[in-house]
């Protein structure tokens, strides 16, 4: 398979976000999700807030949610590691059903098509175990066939009233 076979169209992700009523993004930008950042930044229906650190992306999203908006959070895997305590507080203790889009920064291309846990890079191979250790659901988006899992992440987060992680294993495409 070519690397591009692991790329999901950012337009389809954007469509799913709209279908789920998402109208705000808080983010520390992710190297993997550039194409999605670009689309959301240019969507006039989306409030897009750049944050200095991932804790702030989570707390700002929580405030938006309590105030009636439907935010998502976009960070990369390193950023997720950076905000574990805030994720515990907001996404578990406080029952705020945030969906967090996480990019697999640093994933070596020869790991594509293989389990993330077999990556040679710690920030890639420990992301899923850390999320699951928090007892939060983890949805790996590895090919376009996985796109329905994004909607599932929203449904699960909202039903459980807890955070859920959607993990992009490769760069979403610009189409």
């Amino acid at each position: 398979m070519a690397n591009t076979d692991f790329s999901v169209p950012a337009s389809r992700v954007h469509d799913i976000l709209r279908e789920k009523g998402v109208n705000a993004v808080t983010t520390v930008p992710d190297f993997i999700q550039f194409a999605l950042h670009d689309r959301l930044l240019n969507d006039p229906g989306m409030t897009y807030v750049e944050c200095a650190a991932e804790n702030q992306a989570l707390t700002c999203a929580m405030g938006m949610y309590v105030g009636g908006m439907e935010p998502i959070v976009m960070v990369q895997n390193q950023g997720l590691f950076n905000c574990i305590n805030t994720l515990r507080s907001v996404g578990i203790d406080a029952n705020i059903p945030l969906v967090i889009l996480v990019g697999a920064f640093g994933r070596e291309f020869d790991n594509l098509g293989k389990p993330l846990t077999e990556s040679r890079r710690v920030m890639v191979n420990r992301t899923q175990p850390v999320v699951e250790a928090l007892k939060l659901p983890f949805y790996a988006i590895e090919t376009p066939d996985d796109l329905p899992r994004i909607a599932e992440a929203f449904d699960t987060a909202r039903a459980r009233k807890q955070a859920a992680v959607v993990h992009f294993g490769y760069f979403p495409a610009w189409n």
Partner: peptide, 19 residues
């Protein structure tokens, strides 16, 4: 913002945007 030291300003910003 408890127990979450540091979280108040971000939450306040989010609320101010939404309300």
């Amino acid at each position: 913002s408890v127990p979450l030291m540091g979280g108040a300003s971000g939450m306040g910003l989010g609320l101010a945007i939404a309300q």
